[in-house]
Write a protein that binds this DNA or RNA. Structure first.
Lengths: 190, 190
DNA sequence: TAAATTCCGAACACATTGTTTGATAAAGGG
DNA sequence: CCCTTTATCAAACAATGTGTTCGGAATTTA
């Protein structure tokens, strides 16, 4: 059990916090390493001692944000929504978003960065494709390449997030979850 | 009729071309103004004489790419696909993509840039929301906020493009159009 | 041909990156 | 408690990119 040096813990926490704050304020792209170390009040060389560059720091943040999702309680209520199909990941995620609206608004919005979106989607894809595979084997999905299905579900979900974050008087996580299921599973046709 | 100075035409064409080439090679984000003017063999001050920055040049390129779409022949064949609903924009766009695969692969891919995606989607959104509104008034769509519907269609279409560009042995534009309609209109449920 | 416009290239101040230095401070182990 | 190890810091650095400015040269238009 090698415990991590307290100084290291403190420094990393400060840097994570600074990055998230700055993302909310000006968006990922616009942030410079200079900004981060000033906000965190950390020396320049110390930053590079811990992280290769801005992106590596970001990865640390995202890993941390989503570590929560991994251990979040799966809704075991097998609801009969939309013909038995019910994705597990969506509600947990949507609720997490709801309680961290500021940061997600920034992450999802115009000011974000490709890298941010890339890492976020990559993570979601992992979660989604598992569920897709299960449903596919139970013949509950269309007979299209599972790649397309996964991509489509991820895309739909992401679209929902984006739209949600743009609304002034936001819907609840539960409402969004229903809308997501409705539209992703049976499309837009009346 | 003020005709544009030939030198201006030539310079702008060279810069457009250089940018597109470089996007294919290294992705938008990684490109510097330095790269562009070297590739185009244009003086530094000349670049800034024409464009404020990299993004303004990009906008010029996209406007040009999509000017084609505006005047592209709408498929007037009122096919009875998926219960009478048939988006006009998709096939024209997909065919344009098919004949410019390299650039679209780069634009859509991991190396792209938020600005690129932003401008592309913005343009598509304009086209799509028109069609959505028409269909909505004819009661052919679900009674959800039209904003969600538009966002979803745009998202689905974008997802299709992404997935398409990732495939090694690509489907045809027509196949992709069918898949897009199928999945966007009636979802993934079997 | 003459006037207007555009191009060039060189130089400029400025910001950001990522690295290196050696001194200082703090942590952890015995 | 002392001593070794490790982390931090500030300062300076080269390298790269940005956006501006200048006067002179070249080209276009009329």
């Amino acid at each position: 059990m090698k415990s991590v040096d307290r100084r290291v813990q403190k420094t990393r926490a400060l840097l994570h916090e600074a990055l998230l704050d700055l993302i909310v304020e000006k968006g990922y792209e616009a942030i410079t390493v200079q900004d981060i170390i000033e906000r965190a009040n950390i020396g320049r060389s110390t930053f590079y001692f811990h992280f290769e560059d801005k992106e590596k720091l970001l990865r640390g943040c995202i890993d941390q944000l989503f570590h929560f999702l991994q251990i979040s309680p799966k809704s075991s209520s097998e609801e009969k929504l939309n013909g038995n199909i019910h994705f597990q990941f969506s509600l947990a995620m949507l609720q997490h978003v709801q309680s961290h609206r500021l940061i997600y608004t920034a992450v999802v919005g115009k000011q974000s960065g490709v890298v941010v979106l890339y890492h976020m989607k990559k993570m979601l894809k992992t979660v989604i494709s598992e569920e897709i595979d299960q449903l596919y084997e139970r013949d509950l999905l269309k007979k299209l390449p599972t790649g397309v299905l996964t991509a489509h579900i991820l895309g739909s979900f992401w679209t929902m997030l984006n739209w949600w974050m743009e609304q002034k008087t936001p819907y609840s996580a539960i409402q969004m979850d229903q809308m997501f299921h409705e539209i992703a599973l049976s499309g837009v046709r009346a």
